[in-house]
Structure formats: C-alpha cells, structure tokens
C-alpha cells in the first residue's frame, strides 16, 4: 500500500499479520483483539508495534497500550463515516504521539480535516497523484479551530496580528 506521508508518496514498511504466527522482526501491525489478547508476548518482541483500531471501540481502552505503540490505524469505511475524526482527537488527547494513519475511503478533499485532528499518514490509491495530495494539504491554509500540531488558528492569528499592530503607531 502506498502512503502519503511527510508531503510525499512513499511505500508502507509495515506488515499486517492478521492471524499469522508472529514474525520476530519488522514493523508489525495487528488487530486490536490480538493486541489485547497477546499483549505480553507482543511487547517482548524486538519489533515496532502497530494496531488497527475499530471505530466502534472507545479510545480509552488503548490508554495502557499507547506507550508501546508506534502506529495506530483508523478506518474510514465510507467517505461520510466521521467517527475516526473524533477517535483521532481522543487518542491525541490521551497523549499518543506516534504515527496515526487513515485508511479506507479517503479523498484528497478530506485530507486537511484529517491532518487537523491529528492524522499524519494516509493510505492512498493510484487514483490521485502526489501533486493532488500536496495541493489538498495546503488548499485551506486557515482554520478557526485550534489545530493539532503547532500551526496557528485564526483566533490566535488575529490577536497576534492585532498585537503587532499595537506596537506600531496607531493607524486608525
């Protein structure tokens, strides 16, 4: 699967292992049920761990796993199913700082929303070019809502701007 990550298309290095025996090396992506059932074994392996997390689960159940996770994959089963946006926010609020990946029905038009709630990688098809994704990432440069990451939102920006003006002679 191709990824859009750090503003470019790259190849995915993770291995989704499903119900297969656990390899001892590599970046392993498991389901949440496997993660909770085999947590002790999994965290002993000298591998990086990722989880595919279901939209119907509550974010808090991952709380104790967050330290051992390097990747969380959230799904968009359809364009209009927005649960993963809230899950992403909650996971970031719980302190998760690793890779947060969007999979499923992902259009460039949604990229910005996803980035704003904390997604940083995106599984993409060949249908859109790297240029399409880049363009989508920067199309709306402004947002009213405070943004995950360090970008300024409109509310902060306008007061910073007013502050700067105040330091200059008043122009009316």
């Amino acid at each position: 699967m191709k990824l859009f990550k750090d503003n470019q298309i790259s190849q995915d290095t993770w291995t989704e292992i499903g119900d297969d025996p656990l390899p001892a090396v590599g970046d392993l992506l498991v389901s949440y049920s496997r993660l909770s059932a085999e947590h002790a074994t999994l965290t002993q392996l000298p591998v990086r761990l990722g989880v595919i997390f279901d939209n119907a689960e509550r974010a808090e159940v991952l709380k104790d796993h967050l330290q051992s996770l390097s990747l969380i994959v959230l799904a968009f089963p359809s364009f209009g199913d927005g649960r993963a946006y809230s899950l992403a926010r909650q996971l970031r609020d719980l302190g998760y700082t690793g890779e947060l990946r969007a999979r499923g029905d992902v259009l460039p038009d949604q990229l910005q929303f996803m980035m704003q709630v904390g997604f940083d990688t995106f599984e993409v098809s060949d249908r859109f070019t790297e240029q399409d994704w880049r363009r989508a990432a920067e199309q709306i440069s402004l947002s009213y809502q405070p943004i995950t990451g360090n970008k300024q939102d409109i509310w902060q920006a306008r007061h910073a701007y007013a502050e700067a003006l105040r330091e200059q002679p008043h122009a009316g």
Partner: peptide, 13 residues
Amino acid sequence: RQWSSLHPEFSFL
C-alpha cells in the same frame, strides 16, 4: 459560526 465552519472533527456527522 466561526467555530463550526469547516470543523475538522464534525464535518462528517
């Protein structure tokens, strides 16, 4: 109005 405009989390309710 401002807060809800293109709210990233609540545009696909």
